[in-house]
Amino acid sequence: MTLAVETVLTPVDGSDTSMRAIEYAVAIAERYDAGVHALYVVDEETTRTASFGDVDDSELAAANEAFIADAHELAPEGVSLSHSSAYGFSAMTKTRHPGSVVLDAAEDVEVDFIVIPRQPVSGDPDEPLGRAAEYVLQYATQPVLSV
């Protein structure tokens, strides 16, 4: 059975750990002649302050764009890199979790493979990608590489 991969999803948060996940996603995409979609997952504190209107969307967008610009440097010419962002939490919806956000994006973008950073940067398991990893590993229908 041959694995067919057209799009690789990797959730990111701007950290070095998520940049390493981009490197893996790009390597997989290059191997399968696929594209990469980076999902920038916004952390809980930023989400909470955004719900009160205390976050400057342009600053958040600038941080996302700066990270994605660095990620583009990792992708060889034959690998396309698209991106989007999502709040990993919701003050109004208790079922919104970083893992469910990643899996929703995987469905929306129709990805065939997921590369997810498993280790939180600070060692705090409550960081969004650390929380998302366990969820994605349990519930994803696509193959998942945890890095």
Rank of each mutant, 00 (worst) to 15 (best):
L81H: 02
V102L: 14
P98R: 12
M92C: 07
M92Q: 14
M19T: 03
Y139K: 08
I28P: 00
A29L: 03
T95E: 12
F52N: 14
A61P: 02
A140F: 07
A75T: 01
V136R: 03
A50H: 09
T141L: 11
A38Y: 00
S80W: 04
G78L: 13
E23C: 08
S122P: 04
D16P: 10
S15K: 00
R131P: 15
Q138A: 10
I114W: 06
V115W: 07
E110L: 12
V147Q: 09
D43M: 06
V102D: 03
R96M: 13
V5T: 10
T10W: 01
A86Q: 03
D54G: 08
D13F: 10
A61T: 09
F89T: 02
D54W: 11
A4V: 14
S18Y: 00
S100E: 12
A34N: 07
D57I: 11
V41Q: 03
F89P: 00
L74W: 02
T141E: 13
I68N: 00
V8N: 02
A71I: 01
T47G: 14
T141I: 11
T93G: 05
S85G: 06
G53M: 02
L81G: 01
I116F: 04
V26W: 02
V115Y: 08
G53V: 07
D57R: 08
D124Q: 07
A91C: 08
L9I: 03
I116D: 02
V102H: 09
V12N: 05
A34D: 05
A62T: 10
R131A: 14
S82D: 15
I116N: 03
F52D: 12
D112Q: 07
R96F: 10
S90Q: 02
V144M: 05
A21S: 00
E23I: 02
V42C: 11
L81N: 01
D108L: 13
D70A: 01
L60F: 03
A71F: 00
I116R: 05
E107Q: 08
V101G: 04
M1D: 07
K94P: 05
G14I: 01
R48Q: 10
V12F: 10
V101C: 14
T93Y: 15
A50S: 14
P76N: 04
S100P: 08
T93S: 13
A29V: 06
I28Q: 03
I68V: 04
Q142F: 11
V102S: 08
A61V: 05
P98N: 13
V101H: 06
T49K: 13
M92V: 14
E77D: 11
S146G: 10
N64M: 11
A63D: 09
